[in-house]
Amino acid sequence: MIENFDLTMVNWARAQFALTALYHWIFVPLTLGITWIIAFYHTIYYRTGSEEWKNLTRFWMTLFGINFAIGVATGIILEFEFGTNWSNYSWMVGDIFGAPLAIEGIFAFFLEATFFAVMFFGWNRVSKKFHLFSTWMVAIGSNLSAVWILVANAWMQRPVGQVFNPDSARFEMNNFAEVVFNPIAVSKFTHTTSSSMLFASLFIISISSWYLLKGRHEKMARRSIMVAAVFGLVSSAFVGFTGDEAAYEVAQHQPMKLAAMEGLYKGEEGAGIVLMGMVDSDKKIGDDQDGLSFKIKIPGILSLLANRSSGSFVPGIEDLVYGNPDHKIMGVDDKIVKGKIALTQLDAYKKASKNGDTAAATAALTMFQANKEYLGYGFLTKPEEAVPPVGLTFNAFHLMVALGTVFPLVFLAFLYFSWKDTLKEQKWLLKGGTVMVFLGLFAHWSGWIVAEVGRQPWAIQDLLPVTVARTNLTAGTVATTFFMFLILFTLLLIAEVSIMLRQINIGPKEVSE
């Protein structure tokens, strides 16, 4: 079946989704994180009544408002792409996948958008108490939006709470609570929102560092940095904890992704985690070469992370592709056989049902049910197709972890010199601080690349490969819209950054003004 598909179109559709998602993810983590910090600033203003805190709150609120608009625009385009480029996906799993997306729009986003208006335009128009309440509701609403989007994404990684309907050939939800409380959804939500708070802290530190270097708005910058460094330090500790939990879930339900993240081709007992390494681009699956041309490993840590036991076995890519009877791992070729049986029997069931042959339909359905968990493998032609791009997954994972290790040290340094009241003299730290927001963005992008590229070739893990999930379009059509979006998003980004830079240059209103 797969050989009839134009793989180029799939790659363009994936590239278009990745482009939109990465643009979207410039704006979203800032929204998710900075709303909590703005709520904090606003609370201090409410308690103290200080005009200085009011101006500080309004300044960060303005930057958030500029950011918010384009986050919404790119998010809507992402949802439309499910219909335009991934219509088979929408048709096959829309009953399940559409539910959290609809809830996000109707429940969380409307809540967030309504209170956003009160927060932004409510100064001196509503009571101080209701205004503060609105700011808090924006933080809660935006994070509730993240809940539902991440529930949808977690379902792609581990499709729980569903049943395949052989009559309609669609997946249908049979347990809403299982979908919502999917452990991957919970670990994704906590990891994503805490790392967003970390990112927002870096954003505030970058801008405030620039003010201190320029000798402008110094008290406001010192206050902003003190709060951001605390939020950043606490959230970065939680990011490490939730990252460990997220990796454990990956190891349990997506072992191929974990093996790609670590460039592990041959499974090991007491497997070590790669501290530093480089992927060998000449490596072919099944040859005698190591997957990494050089590596520094810490023994036992990967086994501990994957199975909570430092001596346990972690399967490598070749164990998962070719099978490992000693560890009861079924190879992909066996799964392909079972998947093709499932597809053949599904076809036989439909024909028998149409002809009114109840006995044949029942027999076919029984065979289908016995093999349905391998349904997606029936669309693959050779075992090696089940392996994601190892180099990109490995490099993205290690970049994310490396940056995630640096950030708490940055927050600690800013906190220490703020405490000592000598931050203004630390020019080296302030200069480094101005670029921290970009490193935060790279860490976030890397995380999503690990999550999405590491899941390939699946749109829905083990059930639906991307080659089947797509719309029947030509590659040229999708390539055209890819470049249209690239130009549109770049113009939007230039517009946003220039408006934001102008606001930063103007700075917060000073009390004496």
């Binding site: 909590w36 904090f40 609370t43 201090i44 103290t48 409380f181 452990p183 919970v186 670990s187 939500f189 906590t190 929102t193 805490s194 708070m197 008290k219 010192r222 206050r223 003190m226 709060v227 605390v230 939020f231 606490v234 959230s235 939680f238 904890f241 939730t242 939990e245 906190l415 703020s418 405490w419 009241d421």
Partner: peptide, 30 residues
């Protein structure tokens, strides 16, 4: 684990708030 993670998430926000207020007061930035 789900409940524990979500409770820790709430604790992250509460601890950040309390620590930030305490430090602002200590450094006369409140």
């Amino acid at each position: 684990m789900n409940t524990f993670l979500l409770l820790c998430w709430v604790a992250m926000i509460v601890v950040s708030y309390q620590a930030a207020i305490a430090l602002l007061k200590k450094t006369d930035l409140y």
